[in-house]
């Protein structure tokens, strides 16, 4: 027995030594170990591609890998909740998108905007209305006329009730263009329903359905923005048609509130450099994102607050929230 006892003492000593060494090692500089990057949406989707691309491109600038783990669920809130449960040491970051932001005013999210450190906006993408190229609607005028004549008859495929898609649709209904929202959270099925002619209109960002645009199976008829989108100069924007609703989709990187300011600075600088690489620029272009997507630090935080306020206002107007 004595022999065993000695062994245990030795084991404990080694452990203590390693422990001491490791804590000393930890405090050296930031980042000194891999940074966990939580993707708040499922594998293979638009957010996932963005996170994996960004992680790959940022690694050289931070000097540590950024292993990506997906934690989808509850409109991106499962991953966010986990980020907020982790230590605010800058070793856990996550992505965040406009659809998740919309859950703060509805109360579905359990946190407030101020619980989050807003690092950088990586992609800003206006939403479009798409129709089938060989379908009944030639352009937005034809679609608007049809919605006026048969309120509620035209079906639009969108994400779900209470989401940005729904808000936009209710806004249009208020202007006399009522369509029925057919919700489907699975993107593939949503696109298939429009391609197969089961729903007439699709609300989406252009980057997610590039293959159908390139193959001329779907075409955009309107962009929700203040000006026309450079890649589609013939497509009218909502402002010129008198619809003052924009609500772009955006993707960004966040951390938990309380991460030391110099760590945030390190991260912002690294992401900015990553976003200037040609790979990223090409990626952004392929996704039909705004070329001026980058926005960092305080400016970004103010912008997010503005977006959330306009969502909240519209939700109150349509009775989605009280």
């Amino acid at each position: 027995m004595k022999k065993h006892g000695l062994k245990w003492v030795g084991f404990a000593l080694v452990l203590a030594l390693m422990l001491g060494a490791s804590t000393a090692f930890c405090q050296e500089k930031y980042p000194s170990r891999p940074i966990d990057f939580i993707c708040t949406w499922g594998v293979g989707g638009g957010s996932d591609q963005m996170v994996r691309m960004l992680a790959k491109l940022t690694e050289p600038f931070l000097g540590v890998p950024l292993p990506v783990s997906n934690k989808p669920g509850a409109s991106g809130n499962s991953g966010t909740t986990d980020l907020l449960a982790a230590k605010a040491d800058g070793y856990t970051i996550a992505n965040y998108i406009a659809d998740t932001l919309a859950t703060i005013p509805t109360g579905q999210a359990r946190y407030k905007m101020d619980d989050i450190e807003w690092i950088v906006r990586t992609q800003n993408m206006p939403s479009f209305l798409f129709v089938k190229t060989d379908g009944p609607f030639k352009d937005i005028q034809a679609l608007l006329k049809a919605t006026q004549e048969n309120p509620g008859k035209i079906k639009m495929a969108g994400l779900g009730f209470g989401t940005i898609d729904d808000i936009t649709l209710r806004y249009l209904a208020g202007k006399g263009h009522k369509m029925t929202l057919v919700p489907n959270p699975n993107p593939g099925e949503r696109y298939a329903s429009v391609l197969g002619g089961h729903n007439e209109v699709l609300y989406e960002q252009a980057g997610d359905i590039r293959q159908y645009l390139d193959a001329k199976q779907l075409k955009p008829v309107m962009v929700f923005a203040e000006s026309r989108f450079p890649a589609f100069p013939d497509v009218p924007c909502s402002k010129e048609l008198g619809f003052n609703i924009f609500l772009p989709q955006f993707r960004c990187v966040i951390a938990k509130k309380g991460v030391p300011a110099e760590h945030i600075k390190t991260l912002v600088a690294a992401f900015e450099k990553a976003m200037q690489t040609p790979e990223w620029k090409k990626f952004n272009e392929d996704q039909y994102a705004d070329p001026a997507s980058y926005m960092g630090g305080d400016q970004f935080k103010a912008w997010v607050a503005g977006e959330m306020n306009s969502m909240e206002k519209l939700m109150k107007e349509f009775g989605i929230i009280k």
Binding site: G42, V43, G44, G45, D48, G188, E189, Y191, A192
Partner: peptide, 12 residues
Amino acid sequence: IPGSGATAVMMG
């Protein structure tokens, strides 16, 4: 159109 989780990853 990816119909399942596996094909969604492949699409990615």
